[in-house]
Amino acid sequence: MRIETLHALNLARHARKAAILVTDVDGQGEQVILEGEPVAGGLGEAVHASFRTGKATLVDIAGREVFLNVHLPPPRIVVIGAVHISQALARLAPVAGYDLTIIDPRTAFATPERFSGVDLIADWPEDALSKRPLDAYTALAAVTHDPKIDDFAIGEALRCGCFYVGALGSRKTHAKRMDRLKQQGLSDGEIARIAAPIGLDIGAASPAEIAVATLAQIVQAFRRRDIVTGG
């Protein structure tokens, strides 16, 4: 492997871009393909399939053995709202292998005392997400109940193709939210992707149980996603 190839691959991984390293095992040729880049022919089909499954695979391209090694970014969770549910979710997420970030502009909520050791941003989602954009390998959970804080982040998550978008609130609350999101210019199809009320239906009552239900729903969305479209 050329050092330039490894460098390009590591750069993509560091930038949370899905990438495939294609190695011609017989001829020793190699290339890094980023998700969304056009690739023609039989290799293109194989690349497309590998991005979807996330599995490395050996394929036959015109009689040559070609190895496709897929590198998908590790999934992460962004929580809007430094509330009681978020405290529980911040402890559960690392156990399941997810990085987690909490965003809440209300400095009374977003305190280091309440979220010791957690990646916490005490800023508006508009500002926080412009510095650290959402992507297809991010789950967004909006749990403030406050449209001024939640709505932009939910819309942004749908626009960026986040693999999961969940929003706390009753069906009535969510009906009003859907109206507001339509005014943001989002389509019915996009809005239908929102998981609301948030979390799998396990009869969760306490904030910790809602966190468990939400994390389970995030895992389900990630493992069962059909295709990840680039943000």
């Binding site: 492997m1 020793q28 190895f67």
Partner: peptide, 9 residues
């Protein structure tokens, strides 16, 4: 298993 070993650089 099949393992491919190559030199870097």
């Amino acid at each position: 298993i099949r393992v491919y070993v190559e030199r870097l650089g």
